[in-house]
Structure formats: C-alpha cells, structure tokens
Design a protein around this nucleic acid. Structure first.
Length: 513
RNA sequence: GGUCCGUUCGUCUAGGGGUUAGGACGUAUCCCUUUCACGGAUAAAACACGGGUUCGAUUCCCGUACGGACUACCA
C-alpha cells in the first residue's frame, strides 16, 4: 500500500524545452521530494521523424541549471533502465501482442488513402466525428474483419500494419484526477487509437502506459493537453490487468499567452518580448534562434520561484520561496484548475528580489565580468562602490555594467531637454568655482560626504541655493538628467575626473546656452 | 462541429452560504529625497451572465456565454 512515490517527467526531444514543460518538471520534482520519492526523466523519442539533435542535452542542462535534476535519467540510469523509449523499443511489441491475445487490440492494414477515404465518406454522411472506432472498424481492413488466414498471410508477407486498441462500444470510463476530481467520458466518443505504428515503434499511448508500469510510476503529473486521452490510458491499464498499480493522475492547467488567447507556444517568446525557454536555443535545422531566461539575466532561483507560483500557491501570503521551502510547502491539492497567463512583470520582480539578496562578491563579479567582456578592467574597490550605488535599481546582473556606463566614460554630449530646462548661469558659476577647488587639491579623502560638504560651502560662498542647481550639476558631470546619488558618483569618479568633466561641460554647455 | 476542462481586481491568486471579498505584481498619488530608483503610506481595481436551492449565494445545482485543450501511424 505504501509504495515509494515515483514520478516522471517525460518530454519529447523535439526542440527546446519550453517554460510550460519546465513547470511540469518542477511540479514533478517538488512532489517527489516532498513525498520522499524519486523523480525520473524519461525521453519519449518514439517519433523518429521529429527527433532534434541537441534537444536531450538541452533538457538536461535546463533542469541542472534550475537545480531540479532527476534522480534517474538516461544519463543517470537507475534500476529500470533504459530511460529512452527508443532504447526500449524491443519490449513494446510483446505488450501489444498481449492485448491482441486478450481481445483488446487488433491488427489494422488500412493504408493512409483508405483512412482518408473513410473519413471523407463519413463526413459526407454527416457523421459528426469521422473516426476509426467501435462502429467503423467493421468496415475497415483489420484482423476483426479479415479472415484469420488472410491476416496471417498479410503478416507473413510483410504487409505494413498497425495495432489498434479495441475500445468498448458502450462504457462509461471514469477517472479520478487529483486536481479536477472525477472525470467521466463515454467510450463511444473515443476512437481505436493506434498503439503500434507501422514502423514498429509504439505510439505515446502504449509506450507511456507500459513504461509507467514498468518503472513503478505512482503519480502522473502532466499538462492538461493529456486529459482527453487519459480515459484511453485508464482503459489500457485495465486491459493489461494493471489497475491495482495504476498511477494517480494530476493534469496541470496550461500556461496561456499574456494577451489572453491560446496556450503559450514556442513561437510566442521573442515575439512578445520575453523568453519562453530556459536557455538560448538555436534550431539545428532552420538556424532559428530563441532566447532563454538564463541569457536574459534571470536567476535560476527567481525563475523557479516564479514558475512554482504559476498555478500553485501555498495558501498563505508568502511569495518568496527557496527550492527547499517549495518542497516543504508543495502539495498537489493546492494546484489551481484554471489556465494561467504568463506575466513577465512578475518574473522581473522575483528576479530583482533574488538579485538584491545576492552576495556583494557575486554582484561585483557580474559587473567585472561584463566589463571585462567589453575590454574594461574595474578594480575591486571601484566595482564594490558601483555595485553599492546601483544595487537598488537593477533587475538583471547585466544592469550593473549597462547602467554604470556614465562612470566609465565621460559624457560627450548632454541630454538636451535637461540642458535647456536646468542649465543656468548660477550652475555655471558654482561649477566653475567647484572645479577650481578640486583642481587645486583636496586634502581630506574625497568621499561622498566630503564632496557634498565642499559643494555646499562653495555654493554658500557664491550665494547660490544648492537645490536649484543640483540637476544642472548632475547633467554636467554625468550627461544625464537622473541617476543614483550624485555625491557617491563624485566619490567614485575622484576629484580630477569630476573637475575635468565640469570643464568640458562648461565649455560645451556655454555654446548651447 | 464533437468530447473534455475551466471562469474572483489588468495579471498571479486567497477565500468561501451571512466578509468592509484578503495578498502580491503592475498602475496612480503622497511621503522620504538634489533627480531617478529604493523604502514607507494611500488609492483605483474583481466574484462572466441567467435561472434555481436557501431566510440568505460570489460560494451549491442547472443552463448560457466566453476561454482553453483534444479531436494524427505527434507527443
């Protein structure tokens, strides 16, 4: 009764793992850890035509980056290896044959053309759902309509065939979903899904059930797009006689586009101005590039926290959760039922939070690395001062470098709007005197307090009210109309640089004036 | 079209037969401040609609509308 909890994340390696898949992985991870169980990763690569090289590595790297690596996976096999369905190929046929023997599946030899003809015929006859089902299978070429001898002959001669599930005509299929409660579907609305494809590979439905069973999966936590086929899966468990160990299902609400319509898709990201992938991705076939959260400056703990709250909440008013805290607080019962729109503003807020609570050393290294990439070396002391200056105004690590440009480079031009509005004779007079003082040398260390005291005394000597000219002073030294504490900026720049900049401003702005 | 799922502020959501319907993001205003930001305070902002059930429904039931998923030899 108390089986060890085992859950799996089962992506298809058909491209970059998108953010919805990542959330599914996260919920699986959280549930497994919460229950003291195992989180497995299984690669569902049964569609050879859609395989994309690099996709599997991408999935691995994404999960590692977020810190939610699986306990068992293709690259860390456990006792139920292998973890790629392509490598489990040999085992599926026997299960399909078992179903045929039990009378729950059959061979079907219909060609694509014949299937198409059937659909057209049914559509013409105004059948609402033209499908291969308990009614129409009697008119098709399969082992239920063909003589045993002919079936045998076709199989022997290598005729292409598929194996289809034989669904009951009239049966109420009930399934209990941990998120949605009881879901009832009538078997007459289901079709005879293909279980084994003509290329010898199983479809998702068969492989999924067989592998979940063989891997001892206790809970299937997956996206809502699977809900419509869940009744088929329940039937399959029943056909196999595996009902007593059938996993419990939890179908997650979908992630929707922020503008309201439709589920978030892989194409949306860059179009809407935010990433939908954890990492940068270049499609190996088309060369199309998609940007990732990581490269856009999102911290893994921020993305994790953000993702966790897309459809789940702890029931109280806390919002900041570390991975450990998420594990502690997580429960499937508290996952919502309705689709969730993706709001990047909230993700930014989480990112700001985690960025600001990073260690100073970490922040300093963000700045220094970016500077280095641009060929600029910033000494520790200065970098530390800059980080302290900008810490409260950054969203991404890259903002330290981007927003401190004015500290590394003297202005070559001035914000014209601010110049016309704020620049005046008083400011020029004050700056003239201030620069002169700086040039003649300042005895005490030129920190923010000293810079301010000096500016104040200079202003007083000139009979100028400091408040009226401060923006002009900022403009002169930084070229900008707004920014962090000016006196701190002065301290970082140093007396000579400040004086130099003032001289340049005096010359340049005099002309504008 | 059919089947299934869903619907509380713009967004993420709490709540639940009787509440001033709570929080967060975002937005606005004010305070702090030499500017911007941070921080603090305040504000605007929601139970899709119609029927039941009930003394009472946003909460339970049924319909409608709207949204979504699925409807492949894709997962």
């Amino acid at each position: 009764m108390t089986r060890e909890v085992r859950v799996r994340f089962a992506p298809s390696p058909t491209g970059a793992l998108h953010i919805g898949g990542l959330r599914t992985a996260l919920y699986n991870y959280l549930f497994a850890k919460k229950m003291g169980g195992k989180f497995l990763l299984r690669i569902e690569d049964t569609d050879q035509t859609r395989f994309v090289p690099g996709a599997e590595e991408y999935i691995q790297e994404s999960l590692d980056w977020l810190g939610i690596s699986p306990d068992e996976s293709p690259w860390k096999p456990g006792s139920v290896a292998p973890y790629r369905q392509s490598e489990r190929k040999a085992s599926y046929m026997q299960y399909a044959l078992e179903l045929i023997e039990k009378g729950h599946a059959y061979y079907a030899f219909d060609t694509a053309e014949e299937l198409e003809a059937m659909r057209e015929r049914l559509t013409a006859a105004r059948v609402l759902q033209p499908q291969y089902n308990s009614i129409t299978r009697s008119q098709m070429k399969n082992s239920l309509t063909l003589s045993p001898a002919e079936v045998k002959e076709r199989l022997a001669s290598g005729d292409p065939y598929v194996i289809r599930a034989k669904l009951p005509l009239k049966e109420e299929v009930r399934l209990h979903d941990l998120i949605r409660g009881w879901v009832m579907v009538h078997s007459s609305t289901l079709d005879d899904k293909v279980l084994m494809k003509s290329d010898g590979m199983p479809t998702y439905h068969l492989a999924n059930i067989v592998d979940d069973h063989l891997m001892g999966i206790t809970h299937v936590i997956r996206g809502e797009e699977w809900l419509p086929s869940a009744p088929l899966h329940v039937l399959l468990y029943r056909f196999f006689g595996w009902e007593d160990t059938m996993p419990q299902f939890a179908h997650l609400p979908l992630l929707l586009k922020p503008d309201g319509n439709g589920k978030l898709s892989k194409r949306d990201g860059d179009k809407l101005g935010f990433p939908v992938f954890p990492l940068n991705w270049v499609d190996p076939f088309t060369g199309e590039k998609s940007s990732g959260f990581r490269e856009n400056g999102y911290l893994p703990e921020a993305l994790l926290n953000f993702l966790a709250f897309l459809g789940w909440n702890p029931g109280d008013e806390r919002e900041i959760f570390s991975l450990e805290e998420l594990i502690e607080a997580f429960s499937i019962e508290r996952i919502g039922k309705s689709g969730t729109k993706f709001d990047i503003a909230k993700a930014k807020w989480f990112n700001e939070h985690y960025l600001r609570s990073s260690s100073q050393e970490q922040l300093v290294s963000y700045l220094q690395e970016d500077a280095k990439a641009s060929g600029v070396a910033i000494p520790n002391e200065k970098a530390t001062a800059i980080v302290a200056l900008l810490c409260e105004r950054v969203t991404f690590p890259g903002d330290f470098w981007r927003d401190s440009q004015f500290l590394h480079q003297a202005p070559s031009e001035f914000d014209s709007e601010v110049a016309t509005k704020k620049w005046n004779a008083d400011a020029a007079t004050l700056l003239q005197a201030y620069a002169q003082t700086l040039e003649t040398g300042v005895a005490a260390p030129f920190d923010a307090a000293a810079a301010k005291a000096l500016l104040e005394s200079t202003a007083e000597a000139q009979g100028i009210k400091l408040g009226k000219v401060m923006q002009a002073v900022r403009l002169a030294v930084t070229g900008l109309g707004a920014g962090p504490d000016l006196m701190e900026v002065f301290a970082i720049l140093g007396t000579q640089e400040v004086a130099k900049r003032i001289r340049f401003a005096l010359d340049t702005l005099a002309i504008i004036d």
